[in-house]
Nucleic acid binder design. Sequence first.
DNA 1: TATATTGTTCTATAGAACTATTACAATAAT
DNA 2: ATTATTGTAATAGTTCTATAGAACAATATA
Lengths: 124, 124
Amino acid sequence: MIDFKLDPKSGVPFYRQVIDQIRYGVSAGKLKIGEQLPTVRALAVELKVNLNTVSKAYRELEIQNVLETQQGTGTFIGHIKIQIPKEERERKLTSICSEFLSIASSYGFSIDEIISQLQQGGRK
Amino acid sequence: MIDFKLDPKSGVPFYRQVIDQIRYGVSAGKLKIGEQLPTVRALAVELKVNLNTVSKAYRELEIQNVLETQQGTGTFIGHIKIQIPKEERERKLTSICSEFLSIASSYGFSIDEIISQLQQGGRK
DNA sequence: TATATTGTTCTATAGAACTATTACAATAAT
DNA sequence: ATTATTGTAATAGTTCTATAGAACAATATA
């Protein structure tokens, strides 16, 4: 289970922060397939946000097939593994990396700093 | 001078992205004391945002003593040395890397793939 | 002086984000 | 069956973000 955290100063909407944390948790293996997430009400209380905010995050992730929800039961990590065509995959990798680099360096971060940080964040 | 970049998908307001990039640019030494910034109109055109959005960013930075403005002349990097706390810089790096990683790995890219691509894209 | 350029301010509009409240629907547990 | 728990939905109101357009103020320049 993730230890959810919200950063009000970041400027990033709460529901997007929740989405990010779940998506990253899944890909980092912190959230296993089929695992139950906190209920919308429980997470709303924990994060001190409105129920609708959590609900919105869960809803978007369900649309993306990251989550599966069962009314009355709960919300779970989805079973569907999404497949992306290889050419598109290559292009996507190049594109997001290039875009990210230009943004990161506009903040004054060097490649080395970035890579070092990514390596830390990538540990399981 | 900074190569300004806006990321509409990040969820961070435009004016905040501009603020961030200038502040980090200053602390990284990319923007020198007394250096003139683009005019509000020029930057607005470059970033394809409204004049008021840039103006808002500049105004906040003037309040923070990062910038000094002279009506009719332009906007300049202030003479008061602003240090961005190491922790804040760390947090920003962590934040953008984490967000990027969550997106990248949701496409199924491994850390190694990502880093390898970044190293290629980072060559000049 | 006249004109252009710069930043500033104001109004109006639109949409997103978030909260609050209430109610409804599906499932599980008793 | 009844109750509790879960997710869902609808409405309303506030704040924030961003745009568009217009006008104003200060400075530099021709």
